[in-house]
Simulated assay, not measured.
Amino acid sequence: MKGRCCKKRVSRVISTFFGGFFLVALSTYAQESPNIDETQSAELFLEDYSDDFQDKFFDALKQKGIENYDRAINLMLQCKQLDENNTVVDHELAQLYLKEKQYPVAETYALTALLAEPGNLWYTNTYVEILQKQQKSVENNKEQLPFDEPKFKENLALVYFRKGRAKAAKSILEQTPKSSFTQQLSVKVDDLIESQQAAITSSSFSATNVNRSESGSVEQYKARIQGMLRTNNYLSLDQVAAEALESYPSQPYFYYAQGYAYNKKGKPRDAIEVLETGLDYFVGDIALANKFYQELADAYNSINNSVKANMYLRKIKPGF
């Protein structure tokens, strides 16, 4: 009876109060159980925990969602006392301390979670982000990392690739056992390296050196922006997109480019504003719409509004 009531309580809280926020925090658990739905994942995760743990955990997520990080940290530390080996709690603490810019403490919790689950992509991504904030490299911490785990190396290569660090990704892939995943990723990494090298040699596409008279048409703006997106050259991308929007304010692609650049620069609120404005100009371009929704989801996740993030993720149509 108690278990049934507990499950009803979890389902009710998830659906009526936290929306998708709790599910984001437990996405790593769901990865290991692909045949159960998200609410079941939450129920299974919590069914062995006391009401005290559940209350503190849910409250911590609530506080994180409203950016009350100090309170969220205190609650997660209480959860840690109740279950010191809970890797989800370790990862949450790593992310919270990252938000508070307490990087050494964040690194400790991120490493604990990663060593407990070396095959977890999200733990790897968080750990790399924390190192980058401190101008540290994974290679300098190699001795304490699970480099003997092929899945960890695959995840690390993927994280590097997504961050535009193509040569670093290639270096890791060369040390990783061959698999269908590594072969597919290697092709993408090689393409990215080629694109980055082409961009370096094609100085005419540099955003800082091309004036408006040379790139006044929609097609020329798109060509410049596409080149910058292929090479992850987002440092001046928002300026180029803004320039394009001055002349062509009804072109949704330019809104996407500016929103993408803002996300990469850590300006999620600016990204949300420009991307949601650009949504008004869509005319049936499903592929571009998917890109908008993904960037909006990323931006809302960055400000801990997972309800809106999941709303946009649900809008993404597969196959485009």
Rank of each mutant, 00 (worst) to 15 (best):
E219N: 09
Q102C: 04
G319W: 07
N232M: 09
Q294H: 08
Y256R: 04
N290V: 04
T28Q: 12
S186L: 10
S33Y: 15
K291T: 02
S171I: 07
A241V: 03
E38W: 13
Q31F: 11
A168N: 12
E32C: 03
K56L: 13
E295Q: 15
S306F: 07
A241C: 02
A166L: 10
N86S: 05
K99M: 12
A198H: 06
H91K: 09
S203Q: 10
A94Q: 02
T182L: 04
P177K: 07
Y69D: 09
F254G: 05
G216M: 05
G259A: 02
A244I: 05
Y300F: 15
A289M: 12
A297Y: 02
Q183G: 01
T126M: 02
T277V: 08
T28V: 10
R212A: 10
N211S: 11
L156V: 07
M311F: 15
K178P: 02
K265W: 01
A199Q: 07
L77M: 11
T126W: 00
Y248C: 06
F161A: 02
L158N: 09
K308S: 14
D70H: 08
A72N: 03
Q54C: 09
P252Y: 07
A110E: 04
S179T: 15
R230K: 14
L75K: 06
K264L: 01
Q132N: 11
D83Y: 03
E107K: 14
Y49G: 01
L23F: 09
Y160L: 04
A241R: 01
M76R: 05
R269H: 05
R12L: 10
P252G: 04
S202T: 08
E92C: 13
K2T: 11
T126P: 00
V283F: 11
N209T: 13
R9W: 13
L296R: 07
Q220N: 07
N85C: 03
E100L: 09
L192F: 02
K291F: 04
R71N: 08
V283H: 10
A223N: 08
F282D: 07
K222E: 13
D280S: 13
L26P: 01
T201D: 14
I130D: 05
A242D: 14
F22D: 08
S15F: 03
S171H: 12
N305S: 05
L288E: 06
K62T: 06
F205Y: 11
K163W: 00
K222F: 05
K136I: 02
D59M: 11
T176K: 08
S236C: 00
Q220L: 14
D298I: 13
L229K: 09
K56F: 06
G65C: 03
L288K: 04
E154N: 05
N68A: 13
E214D: 12
Q220R: 12
E143N: 14
T108N: 10
F152P: 00
L115F: 00
V159R: 03
Q132H: 10
Q132G: 09
I130R: 06
K7C: 07
D90S: 11
A168M: 10
D285G: 05
G216H: 11
T277D: 12
Q134P: 01
V24Y: 13
K8W: 08
I272G: 08
F181W: 07
P146K: 01
D90L: 05
V240P: 00
Q63R: 14
D48Q: 11
N310I: 08
